[in-house]
Simulated assay, not measured.
Amino acid sequence: MIRPSRPVRVLASALVAGVLLATAACTDESGGPEAVSVSPAGERSPVSPSATPALTGAGAQAALITPADIEDNWQLATDAATWRNSMLVGKVDVADFLTAKSDAADCQRLLDGLYSDSLLGRASGASGLRGFTSEDARMLYQAGDYGSANLDATLAWLNTLPDKCDQFTATGKDGGKRTVQVVSAKVPKSGDARAALTVTVQGNANGQSATYTTDVAVLRIGASGAAVTNGGLSGVDHDSTALAVQTGAQRLQDVLSGKTPAPMPSQFD
């Protein structure tokens, strides 16, 4: 199958206000609080699941990455819990799946999970989230206790999607067709297990042709997990995704080991 080339990262401000993120009218009331800490860099061996304690509320917040962890021009966002991307709203066209109709349900689950920021499922313990912006791009980072079995099932499911959902069509609420492509992505070998995808959605937004691309990465350490989504209408910065995974795994590992991350630099407060 010939794939279209990935979008070039350029400003798309004319589309951002009306398409990239819905307003608080679409808000899920379960958004987590903001965190105010940063972790030193460094490499350590993964923590054994049997030896990993549960995250506390404060620990889940301390495990969240900061702008210093992902570099570039990322800025903290105060409204991350309200973010919803209207291009991810659509009903998967089952007719596309000629020999594996059940795969359509997996592709629908992917779109719904990306829209609602619920790919990790419901946390069994403490959790938190934090958002960042850079030009028209948005990054959302979540961390919490989800249970090792549930996380492993989620990771196994994500790893099947490049085959099950290689390319499919979804129909938006306005009847417009959107072409969705799902490919595997590479991230640093951090944590006990991980999975990563790049998802591209092509369609119309505000009467104009638009392409939304996002990285999706999930990692597990013991019974705790973290997820990052990063992208926008002008493409995706894969290096920022990689940094979020690497530094996020280190922060989570440090917290689970009983270490206290250093305070976030004052310029990011």
Rank of each mutant, 00 (worst) to 15 (best):
M1D: 15
S5A: 13
P7Q: 08
P7C: 00
L15V: 03
A17C: 08
V19L: 11
L20M: 11
A25C: 09
C26Q: 13
T27M: 14
E29W: 13
G31Y: 10
P33Q: 08
A35H: 08
S39F: 00
G42I: 04
E43A: 11
A51V: 09
P53E: 07
A54P: 12
T56E: 11
A58L: 05
A60G: 07
A62G: 11
A63V: 02
I65G: 01
D69K: 00
Q75V: 14
T78I: 14
D79E: 12
A80G: 04
A81K: 11
L88H: 00
L98I: 14
A105C: 02
Q108D: 11
L114T: 09
S116T: 15
D117F: 05
S118R: 10
S124W: 01
F132L: 06
T133V: 12
T133F: 05
T133G: 06
E135T: 13
M139P: 06
A143C: 02
D145A: 09
Y146I: 06
Y146R: 03
G147Y: 01
N150Q: 13
L151R: 09
L151K: 07
D152Y: 06
A153G: 08
T154I: 07
L158P: 09
P162E: 11
T169G: 01
A170E: 12
G176N: 10
G176M: 01
T179P: 07
T179S: 09
T179H: 05
T179W: 02
V183H: 08
K189D: 14
G191I: 01
D192W: 03
D192N: 15
R194T: 09
T200E: 13
N206F: 07
N206C: 03
G207S: 06
S209F: 04
T211R: 00
Y212S: 02
T213N: 07
D215V: 11
D215N: 12
A217E: 04
I221E: 12
A223M: 06
G232W: 06
L233S: 02
L233F: 04
S234T: 10
V236F: 01
H238M: 10
A249L: 02
R251L: 01
L252G: 03
L252K: 00
G258Y: 05
K259M: 08
P261D: 12
P261E: 09
Q267E: 14
D269A: 15
D269W: 11
